[in-house]
Simulated assay, not measured.
Amino acid sequence: MAPTKPKKDMDDDMLEGAALSAGKTLEKAGVFKALLQPSAKALGDYWGKRTQQWVEGLNERRAKNVSQHMTKVKAVAKLSPPDVAPTERQFTSLLEWTSEAQTIDPEAEPELSALWQALLADILRNDPYADEMRVVLQEMTRADAQAFLTMEYMTGAQSSRSISHSPRADQVPVSPTSAALKDGGL
């Protein structure tokens, strides 16, 4: 029978073998790569998951924004997407409207939201000035929207399609904006 080494020696041999193996790995791969690669992978995995969560949250918020805009237009203007197929212009306008309106939170930016909701109403009504209004709204800030709605209220430039005569954001008219464009305003 071959003599067996005491257990302590066996552990020492295993540690020695592991150290030798690690040394060879470091020698082949490079010290920095061997030391940093596991950390970099873990960090990359962490930020990848965080980014994915952020994107999913962003998509949920954007879908909620569009839904809230559409719900408001349906409720206030009694409009909804047409039962018949939209015209090509309406379809293109709806896609462009969605692209922009999804970034506007109705709760955080009620005045700007009201104007984008008015634009949606104009698109659904197939208003010929809707595309021009969209271009104007794309450049508009929250302060611009507040000023526009206040001026519109104070001058009585409300459209005949208006729902309310109050400058409050929760009561702004749904579709006053095209009239301003037709008259050469904005």
Rank of each mutant, 00 (worst) to 15 (best):
T25C: 05
T25Y: 14
L26N: 05
L26E: 04
E27G: 01
K33T: 09
A34H: 07
A34R: 03
L35G: 03
L35P: 00
L35S: 07
P38I: 00
P38D: 00
S39P: 00
A40I: 09
A42V: 00
A42C: 07
L43P: 00
G44V: 00
D45V: 03
D45K: 06
D45N: 07
D45I: 03
Y46I: 08
Q53H: 11
Q53S: 15
W54N: 13
V55N: 05
E56N: 12
G57T: 10
G57Y: 09
L58K: 15
L58T: 12
L58M: 13
E60L: 14
E60N: 14
A63K: 14
A63I: 02
A63R: 06
N65A: 06
N65W: 00
V66R: 01
S67F: 11
Q68V: 11
Q68K: 12
T71F: 02
K74G: 09
A75K: 07
A75Q: 11
A75R: 07
V76W: 09
V76E: 06
V76Q: 11
A77D: 10
A77P: 01
A77R: 14
K78I: 05
K78H: 13
L79A: 05
L79M: 12
S80F: 07
S80R: 13
P81N: 02
P82W: 09
P82Y: 06
V84M: 10
A85G: 04
P86I: 10
T87L: 06
E88H: 05
R89F: 01
Q90T: 03
S93C: 09
S93I: 01
L94M: 13
L94N: 03
L95W: 01
L95R: 11
L95M: 09
E96Y: 12
E96G: 02
W97R: 00
W97N: 02
T98G: 13
S99Y: 13
S99D: 04
S99C: 04
E100R: 07
Q102T: 05
Q102D: 01
Q102V: 02
Q102Y: 01
I104G: 05
I104M: 01
D105I: 00
D105L: 01
P106Q: 00
A108I: 01
E109F: 13
P110C: 00
A114S: 15
W116D: 04
Q117I: 04
A118S: 15
L119A: 12
L120W: 05
A121S: 15
D122M: 12
I123S: 06
I123E: 04
R125V: 08
A130F: 07
A130S: 15
A130R: 08
D131F: 08
D131K: 15
D131L: 15
E132N: 14
M133L: 15
R134M: 15
R134I: 02
R134N: 05
